[in-house]
Each structure stands twice: as structure tokens, then as C-alpha cells.
Amino acid sequence: MTDLQKSWVLHLGIIALLFVLQFILPAYHHGSLARVMVLTCYAMGYNILFGYTGLLSLGHALFFAAGMYGLSLSIAHLDWNAGPALLAGLAAGFAMALVIGMLLLRTAGVAFMIVTLMFAQAGYLTVLYFGEWTRGDEGFVIQQDLRRIAGYDLSDPTNRYFAALLLMAACIIITLRVVQTGFGRVLVAIRENEERTRMLGYDIQRHKLAAILLSGTMSAAAGAAYGLLFGYAGATFASVQYSIFPLLWVLLGGAGTVLGPFIGTLFMFYLIDLSSELTTAYMLIAGLVLVALTLFAPQGLVGELRRRTMRWLP
């Protein structure tokens, strides 16, 4: 088998495994896994920008929230159906990524991080400021009978799991395709050495903007799906914390690997889930994990795996 075939077999195999798991898992883990899969899409969107292009954003909650509020506000205040509302969420994320992306192209390095942080903070405060519609920190619930697409009730656990898997499978396939094509290779080249890539004749700015658009829209898709599948939208999802989470998940799983975001999200979710049974201090654990990661495994779990044994992992 060539490396290309191996990677398709591995990734499609994991999707198939997750499909089978839904018939076996107990209800609690069934629900958790659906949540993990939606959040994985957020992490995969983040990974396109951070892992492959080497641009560290500290404000991705802006895109997640754009998707979530694009969907939930158009359901709650415009009385749209779930289908068009989902598209509204994606469009909101895309538009946000386009505007912010054009501005971000003018910055580099630490300035890029701080500008993303500032925009996300402004976005969070804006959600609070328009509390009349968004209900601020308290958030609002999307009624169960409004969460239907093509007759499928997405609040039903099985449908929800299937929808989350479908979304994650789409994100995995998109990321795999990106990595295998020339576009993805240029992104990696930008990460490794921007000057040299420019010298080779590639349009750096256009590639960066495309990466931001893809990353932002994928994150928005995750945000919209989260609102739709779990029926809640609140300002917490726009806060700094939700900008840090994907960074944490991606670093933990392995930046610049297709499966890293999934492994990282799964690991962190269950780490917090299990440790919060023992102690309320899950933030302490998250903090220590972050520090330990920067010290001992800068490449993350899947990254270490690739470094040690499976060099063909995309």
C-alpha cells in the first residue's frame, strides 16, 4: 500500500468505527462522543490555520460564535427553519473570516495573536452588549421542534450522533484533501519558511487568506452545529476560554496532523470529565497539562506517534 492509500484506509476506518460505536455505546458516552465530534470540527478548523499554516490565533471563538449566533439568532428572531439557519451560520462565519482575514494579513507574529485576541474580545463584548437579543451570559435555548432538518429531529440522540459524525467525516475528508493537494503543501511551506515560499513565487497573502476562510468557516460550521444539536447558544462560547480550548486540543493531539484534533479533543474531554468527578479543580489540570505539553511533548500525541513510528501520517 502506498502512503496515500494507507492514510485513506486509516481515516475512513476510524469514521466507520465511530459509526459502529453508536450502536454499542451506553447512552452517556453516546452523548459525550457526539459533543466531542462537533468540538473536533472546531479544533480541525483551528488546525488548518495553526497546525498547517503556522498562524497562531487566540480568537477563534469569534468564528465559532459567529456560526452559533448566525444559526440561533435567525431561528429565534427571524423564525427561519433549521436548514437555512445553518447556512446563515456558515455565511456569518465566512463573512467574519473574510473581513477579519483581510485585516489580519497586515500583521505577523505576536501582533497576529494579539489582534485576534482583541477582535474576539470585542466580539464577546458585542454579544453581551446586545443582551436584549442574545440574552448575554445566560444564553437562550432553541426549542426542540425548531431543530429539524428534512424531517429529522436533531435533538434525538441517534440522529444527533449521526449528524455530528457526518459533519466530522466531512471535516476529515476536506482536511485530508487539503493536505494532499498543492494548496496544503504551500500552506505547510508558509509555516516552515515564509520568505522562501514567497521567493519560489507563491502568493503568500492569497494562501493565508484562503486558509483563514477555510478555518473560520469550518469553526463556524462547528458552532452552528453545536447550537443546532444541543439547542443552546450563550456568550460563554464567545469568551476567551473558547478561543484557548481549540489551541489546547490541537496541541494535545498534535498540530499539523489530521487526526490530532480528534484525539486531543477526546482526550481532554474525558480528562476533564473524569477529573471533575474527583475534584472541581479541572482548570488546574488543564493548566498543568498545557505547561507539561510545552515542556515534554511539543508535537502532541499524534505528532509524537508520527515522529516515532508512523512517519506517513498526514
Partner: peptide
């Protein structure tokens, strides 16, 4: 940046 975010969480939680 990542390490100091970790420190932030640790100090806050303690």
C-alpha cells in the same frame, strides 16, 4: 504564550 496560559489557569485555580 501557551505555557503562560497554562500558568494563568493554575494560578487562578489555586
Amino acid at each position: 504564550i501557551v505555557a503562560t496560559i497554562g500558568l494563568l489557569y493554575v494560578i487562578q485555580q489555586i
